[in-house]
Design a protein around this nucleic acid. Structure first.
Length: 505
RNA sequence: GCGGGUAUAGUUCAGUGGUAGAACACCAGCCUUCCAAGCUGGCUACGUGAGUUCGAUUCUCACUACCCGCACCA
C-alpha cells in the first residue's frame, strides 16, 4: 500500500481557511474584538455540516445498533472525577525551557545526574530520555572529569528526572542543547484543564473544571445506565459533547482548539474476552463509517502506538490518521483501556462499579474499548475530502462533493428566470414542499449557470429548475447533478421520490 | 513559549505623511428559455491602542490575530 502523505490532500491550508470564511462555514471567534486564539464559530453552513456529521454518527452508533445506548452528561462534574481519572495530576506536563538556546523540553523526559569523583561533586550531566541515555550520560561524565583534570574513582551515575531536581540544583544542571549549566528554568506546570468556580463565591472549595473529555461522564454514570437500561454485556454507551483543553499552542485552524466537541463511545466487554478481536472490529467499523460519510479512503491510514509508549492505563491504541494539508494527523483514536477508569471511580467514590453476569453468576469490572473522535477534525477531513476543482466547458469550477448525508443543503430550487410569475409561483410551491423534508436553498437571482455554480461551491448535491415546459407542457422539472453536471427531466410528482432515493436517510 | 513573516472591501491584491483604488464576489433594477453573459446603479476596508507630527492607513512602540519553522500535544 502506498504511504499516505499530506501532499495527497487536494487543498492547501490557506485556500481551505479562506473557503471556510468566504462561504460561511467557520469564522474566528469574537472577530470584531480581534479574535481569540484557539476558539472558532460555525456559520450558517458550518453548523449544518457539523450537525449532519453528529447526527450521522448518532444514528449509526446508537439508533442502528441494538447494543449501544446514549448519554448526555454535564460539562462540569464533581472535581473528584478528575482526581480519580488522573487528569488533575496527569493532564499537566511539567516543562523546562533553556533560556540560552530557546529549546523547550518535557521535564519528565530530561534526566540528570551529579558527577561524583573521589567523593567530590565536580558537576552535573544531563541527557534526553531514550534507549542509549545511560551510555551518553557516562561519556559526558568522563568528558567532564577529563576537562576539569580530576583524578580518582567516579561513582556510578544515578540518573533522575528533572522534575525531581532540588531547587538549588537547577542552576547546576547543564542544558542538553548547549552543554552549559545555568540556562534551564525550573520545571513549570501547564495544566490543560480550564478552571472555574461553582456558585458566586470564588473560594478554593468551589473550584471545578470544564471537562477535558466526555468519556468520564460515561464511566461515572456507568452504574446508573446499567441499572435502568436493561443492557447486557457486551454493550456500549455513546456521548457527543463539548470538551475543553487549555492547549499551550492551538494550531492548524480548528484541528487543535481550546473548545471542541467529541463523539465518544465506551464499549464494555467481559474481562476475559479477547480484547484484540474487539479492538480490531471497532477500528474497521470506524474506518467504514468515515468512508461512508464521504471521507476519501486514500487519505486514511492507521498508526499503532508502540507498546512502550502507551499511556499506563492503555493496553493498545490505534489511531486512524488523515492526510490533512498540514500533515498526516490523528483523526480517530481507538483505545483499549482495560478496567482502569471504572476501577479508579470505584476506589475514589467507594461505590461498586461491578457488573453482575447472570450467565456466569459472577461479578466483575468490565473492560472497555474506546473509539474517540473529534467533531471538528472530522469536519475538516470531510471538507478536505470533498474539495475539488474541475473544468466545465473550458471554465474552471470549484466544488465541494459532499456526501448527501452531510451536505449543508440537500437541494436547491430555481425558477429558470425570475421575471415570469408563472415560473416563480411553481418553483416556490416546489421549494415549500421539499422544505418539509430537507434543507432547501431557493435562489432566483442571476443566470441559471451562475446559480448552479454557487451551489457547487457549497456542496449542494442537486439543483431543481422550473422552466416553461414545466408550466406549459409536461409538468417535468430539470434535476441537475452537482458532480457530473448532467441534467434529467423528472415529473414533478415523482420528484420527491427521485431525490429521496439519491439523498438517502 | 522562541524565531521569521503578514495584517487595506466578503475574497485576492494595488497605493499614499494631506481622508484610499482595481478585479472578482455581493445587493437592486433592466434584460435573460439550462452552466460564473450584458448594461446601469449600489454596499463594504486601512486589526487594536499609544507615540512622533499641524496632519498617520503610511513612521515608531506595544498589543491582538493569522501564516511558516522549532518546541509541545496526559
Amino acid at each position: 500500500m502506498p504511504e499516505v502523505t499530506a501532499s495527497a490532500c487536494p487543498i492547501d491550508m490557506e485556500s481551505l481557511v479562506s473557503l471556510c470564511k468566504r462561504r460561511g462555514f467557520i469564522f474566528p471567534s469574537s472577530e470584531i474584538y480581534g479574535g481569540l486564539n484557539g476558539f472558532f464559530d460555525y456559520g450558517p453552513l458550518g453548523v449544518e455540516l457539523k450537525n449532519n456529521i453528529k447526527n450521522a454518527w448518532w444514528r449509526d452508533m446508537v439508533h442502528r445498533r441494538d447494543d449501544i445506548v446514549g448519554l448526555d452528561a454535564s460539562v462540569i462534574m464533581h472535581p473528584k472525577v478528575w482526581e480519580a481519572s488522573g487528569h488533575l495530576e496527569g493532564f499537566s506536563d511539567p516543562m523546562v525551557d533553556c533560556r540560552e538556546s530557546k529549546m523547550r523540553y518535557r521535564a519528565d523526559q530530561l534526566f540528570f545526574a551529579p558527577v561524583i569523583v573521589a567523593g567530590e561533586t565536580i558537576g552535573y550531566v544531563s541527557v534526553l530520555e531514550d534507549g542509549g541515555m545511560e551510555e551518553r550520560a557516562a561519556e559526558r561524565a568522563h568528558d567532564l572529569k577529563r576537562k576539569l583534570g580530576k583524578q580518582g574513582e567516579m561513582e556510578p551515575l544515578h540518573l533522575r528526572e528533572y522534575t525531581e531536581a532540588r531547587p538549588e540544583e537547577y542552576a547546576l544542571i547543564p542544558s542538553p542543547a548547549t552543554g552549559n549549566p545555568g540556562s534551564l528554568t525550573p520545571p513549570r506546570d501547564f495544566n490543560l484543564m480550564f478552571q472555574t468556580y461553582v456558585g458566586a463565591v470564588r473560594e478554593e472549595e468551589a473550584v471545578a473544571y470544564l471537562r477535558p473529555e466526555t468519556a468520564q461522564g460515561i464511566f461515572v454514570d456507568f452504574k446508573s445506565v446499567m441499572d435502568t437500561s436493561r443492557v447486557k454485556l457486551p454493550f456500549g454507551i455513546a456521548q457527543i459533547g463539548k470538551a475543553f483543553r487549555n492547549e499551550i499552542t492551538p494550531r492548524n485552524f480548528i484541528f487543535r482548539s481550546r473548545e471542541f466537541e467529541q463523539m465518544e463511545m465506551e464499549y464494555f466487554i467481559p474481562p476475559e474476552e479477547d480484547w484484540q478481536v474487539r479492538h480490531r472490529e471497532w477500528i474497521d467499523w470506524c474506518r467504514n463509517w468515515l468512508v461512508g460519510i464521504g471521507i476519501r479512503p486514500e487519505l486514511l491510514s492507521e498508526y499503532n502506538h508502540p507498546t512502550e509508549k502507551l499511556a499506563f492505563y492503555s493496553r493498545g491504541t490505534t489511531d486512524i490518521m488523515f492526510a490533512y494539508p498540514f500533515g498526516v494527523q490523528e483523526l480517530w483514536g481507538i483505545a483499549a483501556r482495560g478496567d482502569y477508569d471504572l476501577r479508579q471511580h470505584q476506589e475514589h467514590a467507594g461505590k461498586s462499579m461491578e457488573y453482575f453476569d447472570e450467565s456466569r453468576k459472577s461479578r466483575y469490572l468490565p473492560h472497555v474499548i474506546e473509539p474517540a473522535l473529534g467533531v471538528e477534525r472530522t469536519l475538516l477531513a470531510v471538507i478536505c475530502s470533498a474539495y475539488m476543482q474541475d473544468e466545465v466547458d473550458g471554465e474552471s469550477r470549484n466544488l465541494l462533493r459532499f456526501h448527501p448525508r452531510v451536505a449543508p443543503y440537500k437541494v436547491a430550487v430555481f425558477p429558470l428566470v425570475k421575471n415570469k410569475p408563472a415560473l416563480m409561483e411553481r418553483a416556490d410551491a416546489i421549494q415549500e414542499r421539499l422544505r418539509r423534508r430537507w434543507h432547501v436553498f431557493f435562489d432566483v437571482s442571476g443566470a441559471i449557470g451562475r446559480r448552479y455554480r454557487r451551489q457547487d461551491e457549497i456542496g449542494t448535491p442537486f439543483g431543481v429548475t422550473v422552466d416553461f415546459d414545466t408550466v406549459e407542457k409536461d409538468g417535468c422539472v430539470t434535476v441537475r447533478d452537482r458532480d457530473t453536471t448532467r441534467q434529467e427531466r423528472v415529473s414533478e410528482d415523482k420528484l420527491e421520490g427521485y431525490l429521496a432515493e439519491r439523498i438517502g436517510d
